[in-house]
Computed example of a mutant assay.
Amino acid sequence: MSLVGGPLLVVVGIALVVVTVGAVMGGPRWGPRWVGVVQRTVLVLSAQVVALVMVGLAVNDWGSFYGSWSDLFGGSTGVVTTAAGGHSAWDESHAGGGAPALQPTHWSDAKQYTQKGELGSVELAGRRSGQRARALIYLPPQYFDAADSSARFPVVEVFPGYPGEVQQLVTRLGFPSALLDGIRAHRLRPMILVMLNPSLVLPRDTECTNVPGGPQVVTFLTQDVPADLHANLRVTSGGWGVMGQSTGGYCAAKLAMMAPHQFVTAVSLSGYYNARHDSTTGDLWGGSTKRRDLNDLDWRLAHLPAPAISLLVTIGSLEPGIEGLPGAQQFIGLVRPPMTARLVVVKNGAHNFHDYQSVRGTALAWLSDHLGAAGSQQPAFQAQGRQGDPQPG
């Protein structure tokens, strides 16, 4: 039974009712008095445990923090680490010249592609890094325009937080739907969304790092994913964007700063800008202070030339500490030309999906305005008639 969804909640809910009624009624009365005391104690404790499990499952179902039992207990995640030289499962699937054979979802059927676009799933393989990851890819309606079948589209890589699920970028944050609405209203340019989890070896949080002797996550996301998409889709070779929430926000800012030749713009939704080291990450730097510094975005801005990128930083006013509003303000204060940045503070905002959604339109508009043409760092499109942007802090 799946860890997320209604069936498990129903089963646990029934169990909660049963043990709660048993605890209230005292259970069957038989045997010595001490037996009854033990029975009732067990029933009360069981009711409490089941209630906690019920709350945990409900919160996980709402937030999609763990998508499967293997995610929860650290087993197989469906992401495979391979030796370099692997090839994508879709390399041979679009010899006809159209869109590759993405594994279909319920987003749309083939007859609706020219109106809604396509949302499909595919495995991306890393020739340089040896990593693999499954991604959800959204192709806008314009991709299927027969009158302009040679057009190439800029790409935005989109990341959830840790240990979030890629699906929540669709179900909770609604990025494909919001992009489609913006395209139809002529507020947003057509772009391809590549939604994938940057935590390639769950349950470990690699913080989008090339770990010495371990997963080469920066290489996968900045070189392998672009190469795989360029070989299989009509995408521009540069001028891409990258966006993420929380840990995904740190990844987005970090990848743009490290690979400005590929990513000219980025959006960090409640991200942070320091190099994290805790029980979920382990040693990401191989004991090297230099490696740690190079993965600390404040340090990079203070000690290295600023990259020619544009960055949107959003944060809730109630998010505290170095990973909250004070940390975001500190980072913004270090930005200097040719890098540009804007800080948007969500009034009374916190670290949750509701507040990410409140800046979703601003984030997509920023990307639309700042995505470049192939090989360019200049905007190729200016949105029109945008409304409802939160005020910058």
Rank of each mutant, 00 (worst) to 15 (best):
W299N: 11
V79R: 15
A328L: 01
S270H: 11
P190E: 01
V17S: 00
A374R: 06
G31Y: 05
I322T: 13
G63E: 13
Y138L: 04
A383W: 09
G78M: 08
L301T: 02
L136D: 03
D355S: 14
D298Y: 08
L102E: 01
A99D: 00
P140W: 00
R189F: 02
P390Y: 08
A308T: 09
L301H: 05
L188T: 01
V4L: 14
D283G: 05
Y113S: 00
G282F: 07
A95Q: 02
P260I: 13
L233K: 01
A178E: 14
G96C: 01
V19T: 11
G249W: 11
F153Q: 01
R40W: 11
R187N: 10
G26W: 04
R152E: 04
V50D: 07
G98T: 04
G287S: 07
S270A: 12
W299S: 05
L173T: 08
S129R: 02
A89I: 07
P154N: 14
Q39C: 10
T20H: 03
P160N: 06
R336P: 04
L334K: 15
F65G: 13
S70Y: 01
A146F: 02
M339C: 06
A15D: 05
P176R: 07
L311V: 07
M195R: 03
P379V: 02
P307K: 12
R300V: 15
W240I: 13
E118T: 00
A341Q: 01
Q387G: 05
V194N: 06
L196E: 12
A83F: 02
H230G: 12
G161E: 04
V50I: 15
L318Y: 08
L180H: 01
T219I: 05
G349A: 13
P154L: 10
Y162F: 13
Y143Q: 05
T81R: 12
T171C: 03
G161F: 02
G316I: 08
G324M: 01
A252G: 14
G349F: 11
G238S: 14
K254A: 14
G324V: 09
G385C: 12
S368D: 05
G74E: 07
R40G: 04
G164D: 06
Q103M: 11
D228G: 03
G96S: 01
D181C: 00
M195K: 03
G287R: 11
V17Y: 01
Q377R: 11
L318M: 13
L3T: 06
H94W: 07
Q131Y: 00
T219W: 03
V155I: 04
R291M: 09
P28D: 10
H230M: 09
L43Y: 06
A380F: 05
A380S: 15
D148V: 03
T289W: 06
D228T: 05
Y272S: 04
D148I: 02
D71A: 09
Y162I: 12
R127M: 09
L3S: 10
G120V: 04
G271M: 09
H186W: 02
I183S: 00
P163L: 03
I192V: 14
G36W: 09
D91I: 09
R189A: 12
R292E: 14
N348G: 12
S376C: 08
E118K: 09
G375Q: 09
G321K: 06
L334E: 05
S46M: 15
A151D: 00
V24T: 03
A95H: 00
A302P: 04
S76F: 04
Q48W: 15
C251M: 06
A374I: 00
S358D: 04
A58K: 12
L57M: 07
